[in-house]
C-alpha cells in the first residue's frame, strides 16, 4: 500500500481516536476492506520476484518428474499435431498454405503460437481454484502466480520455437531457403500481445470462476473451438470473398497468428490496422482483468 494512502487513512482515523498523526504514519501495512480498483501492487510484485521464478521452476521440474522423456514431451506434442494437420487439412481437405513451403512449417508455426496462447489462457483461468490451498494460508501478491504461469509458457514456447527454427534451418539446406528480415523483430511483440490477451482473459475468467464455476467448464471446449476461428490450420487469404470472413477477422488472435507467419516466412496477410486492433483488445482486456482481479483477490477465499 502506498505511503500517501496510509497517511490519508491515518488522518481519517486520527480525528476519531485522537492519536497523534505522526505516530500513525509509521504503520507498514494497513488491512482494510477495499482497495482502489486500479491499485497495481507493482512494488510488491518486484519484492516477490524470487517467488515468481521459483514457481516457474516448480512448474518445470514437477511436470515431468517420473517421466522417461521428460522435457522432450514439449516437442513431441507439436510434432504429432503438425503431422495430423498435414494429413487432415493438407492432404484430405487440401487447403492451401499461402504458398509457404514446405507445408509442414506452415502448420507447425501456427500450432506453436496457438499452443502458447491457449496455454497462457487455460492455466491462468484456473489459477484461483488450483492454488486455493496456498492462497488460503499465506498472503503474497496474488498476481505473482498468473505472471509466473505466463513466464512458464514463454519458456515452453521458446523450446517449441527452437524446434521450429531447427526445422527451418534443415529445410534451408533442402532447397527451401529461409528469409531472415527485420520482420523477425515483430515476433517478441506478438509474444507479448498474446501473453497480454491470454493473461487478461485468463484472470477475468479466474476472477469469475471463484464464484461461478460454470466458466471453467465452458472454457475447456471454447478454447478448442477458438482454434478453428483462428487461422491456424488455414491461411486468412483462403477466406477471401467468403461472407463469414468477418467472423474470423474480429478474432484478435487472427492478426497475431498471421503476423507471426508473415514475420517468419514473409507470406500471409499482414497489416498494421488489424495489429492495432489486437493491441487495443489487449489493453481493454488487461484493464478489465486487473480490475476484476483486484476486486476478487481479497475475498475469494470466502467464496471459492
Amino acid at each position: 500500500m502506498s505511503a500517501e494512502k496510509a497517511i490519508s487513512m491515518a488522518q481519517i482515523n486520527g480525528s476519531l481516536s485522537e492519536k497523534p498523526e505522526k505516530k500513525d504514519e509509521e504503520w507498514t501495512e494497513i488491512i482494510s476492506p477495499r482497495t482502489h480498483l486500479f491499485d497495481l501492487p507493482l512494488r510488491q510484485l518486484w519484492n516477490y520476484r524470487d517467488l515468481m521464478w521459483l514457481f516457474v521452476r516448480r512448474d518445470f521440474v514437477a511436470q515431468y518428474k517420473q517421466t522417461v522423456l521428460g522435457p522432450l514431451w514439449h516437442l513431441i506434442q507439436p510434432i504429432f499435431t503438425t503431422i495430423v494437420f498435414l494429413l487432415v487439412f493438407g492432404k484430405i481437405a487440401n487447403i492451401p498454405t499461402d504458398g509457404i513451403e514446405p507445408r509442414m512449417l506452415f502448420y507447425m508455426s501456427g500450432i506453436t503460437v496457438w499452443n502458447y496462447f491457449s496455454g497462457c489462457l487455460t492455466s491462468t483461468s484456473t489459477v484461483f481454484l488450483t492454488n486455493a490451498a496456498i492462497f488460503g494460508k499465506v498472503y503474497f501478491p496474488r498476481l505473482v502466480l498468473p505472471l509466473s504461469i505466463i513466464i512458464s509458457n514463454i519458456v515452453r514456447f521458446g523450446i517449441q520455437f527452437l524446434l521450429l527454427l531447427a526445422l527451418m534451418i534443415w529445410f534451408n539446406f533442402q532447397g527451401y531457403p529461409m528469409k531472415i528480415s527485420f520482420h523477425w523483430l515483430y515476433i517478441p511483440l506478438i509474444i507479448a500481445l498474446m501473453a497480454g490477451i491470454g493473461l487478461g482473459l485468463g484472470i477475468i475468467i479466474s476472477a469469475l470462476t471463484t464464484r461461478y464455476r460454470d466458466l471453467a467448464v465452458l472454457l475447456t471446449f471454447v478454447i478448442q473451438l477458438a482454434m478453428y476461428a483462428t487461422p491456424v490450420a488455414y491461411p486468412l487469404s483462403y477466406l477471401r470473398g467468403k461472407p463469414y470472413r468477418w467472423l474470423i477477422e474480429i478474432n484478435p488472435l487472427t492478426s497475431l497468428v498471421e503476423c507471426f507467419r508473415y514475420a517468419l516466412f514473409g507470406k500471409g496477410t499482414f497489416d498494421m490496422q488489424s495489429l492495432g486492433y489486437s493491441v487495443i483488445f489487449m489493453v481493454v482486456v488487461l484493464f478489465i482483468g486487473v480490475l476484476l482481479f483486484n476486486k476478487v483477490e481479497k475475498t475469494f477465499m470466502d467464496t471459492v
Binding site: E26, I30, I31, V138
Partner: peptide, 16 residues
C-alpha cells in the same frame, strides 16, 4: 484477517 488471506467486511487493521 491478520495474515491477510481474507479481508474484513468493515474496519481496518494497522500493522508494523
Amino acid at each position: 484477517i491478520l495474515s491477510r488471506t481474507t479481508t474484513p467486511t468493515v474496519g481496518n487493521i494497522k500493522l508494523k
